[in-house]
Amino acid sequence: MSLPNRPVDPALARGRAALSRECGRYERLRREDVHDGWDMPEEGTVFRTEVSDEVPRSVISYVRSPDLPFDRSLNPYRGCEHGCIYCFARPTHAWLGLSPGLDFETRLVARPTAPQVLARELRARKYSVAPLAIGTNTDPYQPIERDRGIMRACLEVLRDFRHPVAIVTKGALIERDIDILSDMAAQGLARVGISVTTLDEALSRRMEPRAPGPKRRLQVIRRLVDAGVPVRIMASPMVPALTDPELETILTAGAEAGATSASWIMLRLPLEVAELWQNWLETHYPDRAARIMNHLRDMHGGEVYSSKWFARMRGEGPYADLLAARFKRAARRLGLDRDQPPLRRDLFCPPPQKGDQLDLF
C-alpha cells in the first residue's frame, strides 16, 4: 500500500526540507488520509531517521550520459539525510515505493556489503579501469556514515587496488578520511568537489537543513587542500533570483579556501522534485516564487525542466547565457578556469588474495 499523499504538519517536519510524503510515480494506488483525532502524535514528536540495509549484487553503476565527465559511479546509501530540497536524486526513492519527499530524507537504505562487492567487481577479468565517481547521486558523507563507515571501507578498497576516484560531497565527515585521500592524491588517484550553494547561513539551513553550513564547507576545502588533495569548488545548484547573485562571492570564497578549479550547475527539477521545490518556495519565499519559476521556464522552453542533453544542467536562453558568462569571467579572474588534474589509471593493481599464485619475478 502506498503512503499517504497529504501534506505533513510543518511542526512534525522540523529539521527537514520536504513537507509532504507524496506517493512515488510508480505506485498504482494512492490514498487520502482523513484524521479522526484518535492517533494524534505526542507533543514534540518529529520525523526520525530510519535506516534499513540492502544487500546489493553489484555496486558499480555504469552511465552513458554524454554530458557527464564519468562513466561509472557508486552510492553507499539510498536516500540522503542532508535533505536538500532541490536534490535531483529524490525521484530515485520512488523506485523503492517510497516518497521522494520526506521518505527520501528520513527512510534511508544502507549498503553495508558494498566494499566487498566493489572488490569483487574490480577483480573481474573483464573490468577496465576508469575513474569511479562517488557522491553523484546521494552524499556518501551524510550523517549516518559516521556510524556505518561504508564510504570509508569503500575508499580502503580503492586505495588497496590503486583505483582512481572522484568524490562530490557537502559533508564535513570527509575530513575523517583525509589519511586515505591524501595518500591517494599523492599518487594522482583522488580528487574532491565540494558543493557550496549559498553563503547565507539562514538560506542554507532552510534549503539544506542537515548539511554542514557554508562556512564549515569552506573549512573542509582548506583542510583537504592542506593535505594535498585537489579540490574543486562547485557553485551548485544556482537558483535564479535566489542564490545566483552570490555566484562570484562563492567562487571567491572557494579560491581563498584553496580550491584550484570550479564548476556550476543550474537548478534542476526532474519529476517529483518540481512540486517539492515549488511547495518549498511558496512556504519560505512566496514573494519571489513566481519570478524564480518564470526564469526556469524561460530556460527550458516553457517547462520547469528539460532533460535535453547538455542543456539540462545549464539551461538555454539569455539568462542561462548571462550566468555562464559571469562564471567564466569570475573563474578566469580567480585562477579557477582550469580542469582538475587527470586521475591516473596505470597504477591499478588488484592486491593479492589468499591462495593466489605469486609472481616469480
Rank of each mutant, 00 (worst) to 15 (best):
G302V: 06
R120H: 07
G83H: 06
P76Q: 04
N294Y: 04
Y141G: 05
E248S: 13
D139V: 06
A311N: 01
V46S: 11
G355K: 11
L358Q: 13
L276G: 11
L199Q: 13
R31K: 12
S204K: 06
T283Q: 13
G258M: 12
Q278C: 11
G355C: 10
R21C: 07
L122R: 02
R120D: 12
H284Y: 14
E81P: 06
R217G: 04
V51E: 09
A235R: 07
E27T: 09
S65W: 05
A211K: 04
A255W: 07
R288D: 06
P164V: 01
V168M: 09
D179C: 00
L358A: 15
D287R: 13
V192A: 03
E156A: 07
D359F: 12
P209I: 01
M313Y: 12
T136G: 09
M293F: 00
W38E: 13
D298W: 06
L347I: 03
R297K: 14
S65T: 08
G301W: 09
R329F: 00
S195G: 03
P240K: 03
E156D: 08
C23D: 12
P76T: 02
G44V: 08
A166S: 14
S195D: 02
W38V: 07
D298H: 08
R31D: 09
T283F: 15
A94F: 06
L3K: 12
M184F: 02
Q278W: 08
S61T: 10
S306M: 00
N5H: 15
V229Y: 08
A274G: 06
W95K: 02
K308D: 10
D36H: 10
E248V: 09
Y86T: 05
D321S: 11
R123D: 11
R64K: 08
H93P: 00
V225E: 09
Q142H: 04
H163E: 02
L276A: 05
M299K: 03
R268Q: 15
G149E: 01
S195A: 08
P140M: 04
R64N: 10
K215I: 09
G101E: 05
T198N: 10
D160V: 01
Y319N: 00
G44H: 09
R78V: 06
P164C: 02
D244K: 05
V34A: 13
P351W: 03
Y127Q: 02
P41Y: 04
A330S: 14
M40Q: 13
A235I: 07
E256A: 13
M1K: 10
P76N: 05
C154V: 06
P286W: 08
Q187D: 13
R216A: 14
M238E: 13
